[in-house]
Design a binder for these strands. Sequence first.
DNA 1: AATGAATGAGATTTCATTCAT
DNA 2: TATGAATGAAATCTCATTCAT
Lengths: 210, 210, 210, 210
Amino acid sequence: MNALPPGEPKFRRRPDERPAEILAAALDVFSEHGFQATRMEEVARRAGVSKGAVYLYFPTKSELFQAVVQDAIVPNVETLKALVSQAPSFETAIRIGLPGLAERLLEDGRVTGVIKLIIAESRSHPELAELWHGTVIEPALSMMTGLIERAQGRGEVRAGDARYFAFGLMGPMLLTAIWRETFQPVGAQPIEPGLLAEQHLDTVLKGMRP
Amino acid sequence: MNALPPGEPKFRRRPDERPAEILAAALDVFSEHGFQATRMEEVARRAGVSKGAVYLYFPTKSELFQAVVQDAIVPNVETLKALVSQAPSFETAIRIGLPGLAERLLEDGRVTGVIKLIIAESRSHPELAELWHGTVIEPALSMMTGLIERAQGRGEVRAGDARYFAFGLMGPMLLTAIWRETFQPVGAQPIEPGLLAEQHLDTVLKGMRP
Amino acid sequence: MNALPPGEPKFRRRPDERPAEILAAALDVFSEHGFQATRMEEVARRAGVSKGAVYLYFPTKSELFQAVVQDAIVPNVETLKALVSQAPSFETAIRIGLPGLAERLLEDGRVTGVIKLIIAESRSHPELAELWHGTVIEPALSMMTGLIERAQGRGEVRAGDARYFAFGLMGPMLLTAIWRETFQPVGAQPIEPGLLAEQHLDTVLKGMRP
Amino acid sequence: MNALPPGEPKFRRRPDERPAEILAAALDVFSEHGFQATRMEEVARRAGVSKGAVYLYFPTKSELFQAVVQDAIVPNVETLKALVSQAPSFETAIRIGLPGLAERLLEDGRVTGVIKLIIAESRSHPELAELWHGTVIEPALSMMTGLIERAQGRGEVRAGDARYFAFGLMGPMLLTAIWRETFQPVGAQPIEPGLLAEQHLDTVLKGMRP
DNA sequence: AATGAATGAGATTTCATTCAT
DNA sequence: TATGAATGAAATCTCATTCAT
């Protein structure tokens, strides 16, 4: 006689986990479609909530987008700080730090996804490029040029523009990220970030010797 | 024999140029806003024609977009073929070909714009990534790995994955393109493609020696 | 005999007052924004309760709105009945009753607010106009035309349409209400309801003499 | 064999008449429902165009609303100027001008509709009340108080606040407008603006004599 | 009884595309 | 061929109402 419908409840209250769930879903969708082509409804669907629920936590699509990138930056900055804090000799730092970092970051679709997003949306959302540049790129670049210049001072590295040496070291890492996002999905042969990083470092570090 | 009737404007709009004008305008706008955020009306305005006129030449926005990328690929393929046809010794090829190529291509906003577009829209328009990969990337990569492998056979280059060597050479060029499109507009210090290319080649070619 | 346990707050929220608090808050908000633009959340906030609590007392926004107007009508009807019950001579009735009534009602933002609301929402909520007309306007008008007609019968007032005389007497009172709600907020010089009423009655009563 | 469908064209180009048609439809709908409750789709439907067409001429709902009120003010200002320009003796001016004005304006649903709108929306669109006050109300009031004060100077009108005399004259005209919009639709007995105006003027002008 | 997170229908606004001129 | 007014599907965002807690 008890006619209570046994079905699941229409929704559950999960105020603490919701924002993170929505951010994760949003990163997925944004990085698949870009900012404009992303529909809020799809973000909601993938987060398992209603359209309205997204707006409870993020007042506009634009602010959701910024939160996604912010959220992706924070752990990178931590990683970077940890790396800097050690700061041993130049070759050691690079040789130990980079391949692991490359492997860890570039095999994580969330990282490559955000990188692609920032490239794609830098014109319409320059504040993102600015944030990423100021928070991740510029500090990392400074750290590297610093290491390189000190190594040049000690005679461990030959003369040359320290910033261009840094770009030479990092370029293939960026290429890997883009390759993964852009060409692998259409059938290009995958790159193994760790292997590429190692061979490239061997090559470049050797080439940088006096 | 010059039959231009006097009193007529010296230059009249030649209908044959319309498609090219529209493509040029479209490249500008697509590369500023991305595919979705580009409005056909703005393309028309920049091309100096009416909205309707665009549709006389390109039946949909999507086909206009593909035509833009196609159009940007053709001259690159020509450049590439010319480069390949010479095919001298490894070091000479690279050292002579790359810096000039880098300078010519990476300082042309249309090229870096298309590169960015392809990265940005690869998910929603995979056929573009496929086209670009098949027509530009893969041939260029094959040519380079071929050169490298032959050089390895001759003992001019040490052992190692030829494809990763190629990525190591090309990575900073891509980084330059993205730097220009993404970070320079928000105040990052510019890269000089020719200088970076030269220093990088010196370094990598030296590092690749046995 | 005072059994209030010490340490308890002196005033506790008595549940009986909830509906009145909500009605008061709702009148405020409705009269500021109109029916459609009023958000239930704001009513709740101003009443100091949660959104859900409003729905415990008023099942829909529409019924809350009707209750607000109902609630504003009741005391007016009482006032009116009291006035009618005295029903002395025409001039005395008008001269004694009106200025005080005008002052009392028209300086009360709740009254002018409801008047404005009824005007504003009469098309979408005709039942309100009907209620107000049947409960306040029509009885008041009947009372006045009755007084006037009897005064005409006694030769105290000249011939003329009694209803138009009544409108002539009441018009400026309505104007005062609207002036207060509509033009004073944008800087118009205020009207003093009592003074205007008095001067107007002097004028009209004199003009109504035979 | 000619299979051209004989049906009417999907739409017609009428660029010159469109804005006026849309304004007329919008006045209707706004004055029936108020600003918030008006749906752009209904405005479009009544104007016989598509939703999008409305946006070709008025960029937002709010600007459409303001245009509606603007549009309703212009002819009133003209009427007012004409009236002022004559400026004969006080009694003549009032007695000749007002009943005709009352009849003409207050039997025009567009005028009473706009009056109601301004009252209803004065809180959410104070700029409308300001515009109406500055353009219509304040000039008209100044003109009337000027006439009255000059008449007082000549001893034709007894002492008293000229502004309150003006309100006493105009109040019933406003009441008529509101009566028509608010109570007639729910069955109240209509007011004949011309008759009420005439009887009211007889009464008040007599009451204003020294 | 009370809360406020969650829902989802519905509103405004945009813009690719069409078509009368 | 060329124009640009007009269309209408689709997107963002709001908010009355519900319901798990």
